[in-house]
Amino acid sequence: MKEEHKDAGLKSYVFVWLGLLVLTAITITVAGLHLGNFSTVTAVLIATIKALLVLYFFMHLKYEPPLLRFIFAASVLTLTVIIILTFTDVWFR
C-alpha cells in the first residue's frame, strides 16, 4: 500500500483478460476430451488458475499488504476444512 504502484499499467489488465479467455477456451476443449476422473480435477485446477489471476491482478491482491491476503486465505482454508470434515461422514457412511 505504501509503495507507489501503477497497477503495472492498464495494459497488463488486457493481457490478464486475454489469459483468462485462453484458459476458458482450454477448459472447454479439455472437457470435450472425456478424461474421466481427471476431468473434474483439471477443470477445478484451471478454474483456480483463473481465480488467482483475477485475485492477483484485477483485485490487486498482488500489491496489497499481507493482511488482506491472509484474510482471503482464511476463507479458502475454512471452506476446505469444513468440506473435508463433512466428507469424513459422507465417504464412510
Binding site: T24, T27, I28, A31, S39, T40, A43, V44, I46, A47, K50, A51, V54, L55, F58, M59
Partner: peptide, 23 residues
C-alpha cells in the same frame, strides 16, 4: 465496489465448469 464485482466473477469461474463442463 470493484472488489465485489470481481468476486461475483470469481464465483462464476467455478460455477461454469462445475455445471456446464461435466458431460
Amino acid at each position: 465496489g470493484g472488489l465485489y464485482w470481481h468476486l461475483v466473477d470469481l464465483i462464476w469461474i467455478y460455477l461454469f465448469p462445475l455445471f456446464y463442463l461435466i458431460t
